[in-house]
Amino acid sequence: MINSIPIREEAGSKDVEKEKDFDFFYFVQQWPGAYCDTERSCCYPTTGKPEADFGIHGLWPNFNNGSYPADCDPNNPYNQSEISDLVSDMEKEWPTLSCPSNNGTKFWAHEWNKHGTCSEHVLDQYAYFQTNLDLKKKADFLNALKTAGIEPNGTFYSLDKIRDAIKSGIGYTPGITCNVDASGNCQLHEIYLCVDTCGSRLIECSLFPDGKCNSEIEFPSF
């Protein structure tokens, strides 16, 4: 049986352990339609409205007990000059939706500083961001869902059907988390996959976040 853990609050969690080693990564992508369709709303990046596709949220080291390391090396902060040739791909595959509108640097810096530094003994800064982009190619969630007849058009679908579609299309069981739109409807927000500690291979998850999903959830348009 796969265990469930409380979904992390990305802005405020401080469940930090001193040990920098970890047991696996979560690779997380978010659906922009769900991010934007809340009371908080969103702002498109300065490069324009992103494509209607899942975007990278991040690659997060985790422990098997449900905790995770964070902010492991303040002496190795985000340095965009080290990844300059990746930025154009990151703008497409890892767009920011936070307000006010910005170029994504703050989002990427947060992901590296909080999560990436905890894997720097495995992935340096360049490898961390390249690995995220490589995993995005392996995990085409939108195609997997559309192949199963699940379209982002505001329709409600069975949570089990969405999970099964991802498992069939990608080959691994996903974790799914939901948020609530401005009308109070439960909607598909993020999809989690697990990755080995080298960041190179998808693996089955031993535990998932508490997705806060109903049995039927909306797949909103974007």
Rank of each mutant, 00 (worst) to 15 (best):
Y44N: 15
Y44K: 14
Y44E: 13
P45Q: 01
T47N: 11
T47V: 03
K49L: 04
K49R: 11
D53R: 12
F54Q: 02
F54S: 09
F54W: 11
G55K: 00
G55L: 02
G58H: 02
L59T: 06
W60A: 12
P61H: 10
P61W: 02
F63L: 14
N64L: 15
N65M: 10
G66Y: 01
P69H: 01
A70E: 09
A70Q: 09
A70D: 07
D71T: 06
D73C: 15
D73H: 14
D73Q: 14
P74C: 01
P74Q: 05
N75L: 13
P77I: 08
Q80T: 06
S81R: 08
E82P: 01
I83Q: 07
L86W: 00
V87M: 15
V87I: 15
D89S: 09
E91M: 14
E91R: 10
K92E: 10
E93D: 07
W94H: 06
W94Q: 06
P95S: 05
T96D: 12
S98E: 06
S98G: 06
P100I: 05
N102V: 04
N102D: 14
G104L: 14
G104H: 06
T105S: 14
H110M: 09
H110R: 13
H110C: 14
W112D: 02
N113W: 01
G116M: 03
T117R: 05
T117D: 04
T117G: 07
S119H: 01
E120N: 15
E120G: 00
H121P: 05
H121Y: 07
V122Q: 09
Q125G: 09
Q130D: 08
Q130L: 13
T131Y: 01
K136V: 09
K136R: 11
A139S: 13
D140R: 15
F141D: 10
L142P: 13
N143K: 15
N143C: 12
A144M: 11
L145A: 06
L145V: 11
K146E: 11
K146P: 02
K146L: 03
I150T: 03
I150C: 05
P152W: 02
N153F: 02
G154Y: 01
G154V: 06
T155Q: 09
T155I: 00
Y157L: 11
S158I: 12
L159G: 08
D160I: 15
D160A: 14
I162P: 04
R163G: 07
A165K: 07
A165Y: 03
I166A: 02
I166P: 00
I166N: 01
S168P: 01
G169Y: 02
G169Q: 06
I170T: 14
Y172R: 13
T173L: 11
P174G: 05
P174C: 11
C178A: 13
C178R: 03
C178Y: 01
N179K: 00
V180F: 08
D181H: 00
D181C: 05
A182Y: 06
G184Q: 12
N185D: 04
C186H: 05
C186M: 08
